[in-house]
């Protein structure tokens, strides 16, 4: 499987036909975002489909990570950040005043650029989320941890050292642990912010393979600066530039026949 993904030119390998019929999971309408007086996002409008992988690409500082963080309101933690516009998940505006942000973030999991396991054991890392919900039943936790680690394809590597520190895992293992940690809270959407940018090629391949598996059950939005990666893993691709959404469509279309000149320039590596 890994070999296949690594072989590149994977565009044809994914069964993409089925996702076009999937309902819309996240709907963004005229989203503007400000850091103080600086406008970081300009009127973004896009629909993200359920159980599909949507890749956000673009040069550094183009707003793709900022946009990703508006989807689980992680930008709330930044002082001076302000939002205009509407983001709905399953038709509910997540910026409505009475939304429970903690519940939102449980539903919308996030994997960060640099793997950030807690300095706790492997088990405690994965069990962290369920425990937040007040689950203390040991058998249930063990089951949930095993399940999550299996889903993130880490179980075989760590099942004998669940109680050693997560800090002793390799970088790639740590990142998959972070994914397992997200899965353990049963999210519906998973946001990934350049999840493989700090990893070696082999670990990257494992993560990509994992994304391919997860997409059957989760809605995934992934930020990447790696064009080949976007082409390999995603169903839809959005190209951001200077805080604006330049082009958005099926990955196949974007990569083979981009509508906009800027997109083509970026994809073919003429700038960026």
């Amino acid at each position: 499987m890994i070999a296949r993904t690594l072989a590149g030119g994977a565009l044809a390998d994914l069964d993409r036909d089925d996702v076009a019929q999937n309902p819309v999971k996240i709907s963004v309408h005229d989203l503007n975002m400000y850091y103080g007086n600086v406008r970081a996002l300009h009127g973004i409008t896009m629909d993200i489909k359920e159980r599909a992988v949507t890749a956000l690409i673009g040069p550094s500082g183009c707003g793709k990570s900022t946009f990703l963080r508006t989807l689980n309101r992680m930008n709330d933690t930044i002082p001076g950040a302000r939002i205009e516009g509407i983001v709905t998940i399953d038709g509910v505006n997540i910026y409505a005043p009475d939304v429970n942000v903690a519940a939102l973030r449980r539903m919308v999991g996030m994997v960060f650029q640099k793997q950030n396991p807690f300095p706790k054991s492997v088990f405690d890392n994965v069990a962290y989320g369920p425990r937040l919900h007040g689950i203390t039943d040991r058998a249930f936790l063990e089951h949930r941890v095993e399940e999550s680690l299996k889903k993130s394809a880490l179980w075989d590597e760590v099942k004998d050292r669940l109680h050693t520190s997560a800090m002793q895992l390799s970088g790639g293992q740590q990142q998959r642990l972070c994914i397992a940690r997200v899965l353990a809270v049963n999210p519906e959407i998973i946001l990934m912010d350049e999840p493989a940018s700090a990893l070696d090629p082999l670990s990257t391949a494992k993560i990509e393979e994992l994304i391919h598996q997860l997409r059957k059950h989760y809605t995934i939005v992934i930020v990447t600066h790696n064009m080949q990666q976007a082409a390999r893993v995603s169903d839809y691709t959005a190209y951001f530039y200077m805080g604006s959404l330049v082009e958005f469509g099926e990955t196949k279309g974007i990569f083979t026949n981009p509508e906009k000149k800027e997109t083509e320039d970026y994809i073919t590596g003429r700038f960026g």
Binding site: I89, V92, I94, D98, V99, N100, A102, A103, L104, M107
Partner: peptide, 10 residues
């Protein structure tokens, strides 16, 4: 609105 996003934690 009794969507799960609105269920307030205590």
């Amino acid at each position: 609105m009794d969507h799960k996003l609105f269920k307030k934690d205590v």
